[in-house]
């Protein structure tokens, strides 16, 4: 099987990584770069625990080849807070509203919520639920997650 060199920027840092053709983006992030904030749940694109930004848009990193990210820019949960360590409004709201229980879905959920707030400044509850439909949570029942995203929208809105 072929190997390829993948050049990519992750959370502002540039990397060049040798991967196999069948290496997944999530494997590159977790196993090669040790960025283990991104989780693997189902591995089939249903649960959203592996959600990251690729070139400004959320994707399931378990359904993305590492070679597809060549030349690309990636933001993982580790890059959502500011470089100085100040939490993103979504992260702060998740803490304040208790939107986390076991925490396994949280990185993907936060990334999806950040995507939503980039696209919509004042999303309705329906819009929020639609935006996180690709992120499954087995603990919270979603109510507190939706409340946290509503609060973050109010805080970061114009």
């Amino acid at each position: 099987m072929r190997r390829a060199l993948v050049h990519l920027t992750v959370n502002g840092d540039r990397y060049c990584v040798a991967v196999r053709s069948n290496t997944l983006l999530v494997e590159l992030l977790r196993d090669h770069l040790r960025l283990t904030g991104t989780k693997v749940g189902c591995g089939t694109g249903d649960c959203g625990a592996c959600t990251v930004f690729l070139n400004g848009r959320t994707v399931n990193s378990c359904l993305t080849l590492a070679v597809e990210a060549d030349g690309g820019e990636i933001t993982t949960i580790e890059g959502i807070a500011s470089p100085a360590g100040e939490l993103h409004p979504v992260q702060a709201a998740f803490i304040e509203h208790g939107a986390t229980q076991c925490g396994f879905c949280t990185p993907g959920m936060v990334v999806s919520a950040v995507q939503l707030l980039r696209d919509e400044h004042r999303p309705s509850e329906e819009c929020i639920r639609h935006a996180i439909a690709g992120n499954l949570c087995r603990c919270t029942g979603y109510t507190k997650i939706v409340e946290a995203i509503e609060a973050a929208a109010e805080r970061s809105g114009p």
Partner: peptide, 9 residues
């Protein structure tokens, strides 16, 4: 059709 993440790809 599908989730936001899948629709992006």
């Amino acid at each position: 059709l599908a989730t936001v993440q899948v629709r992006h790809k």
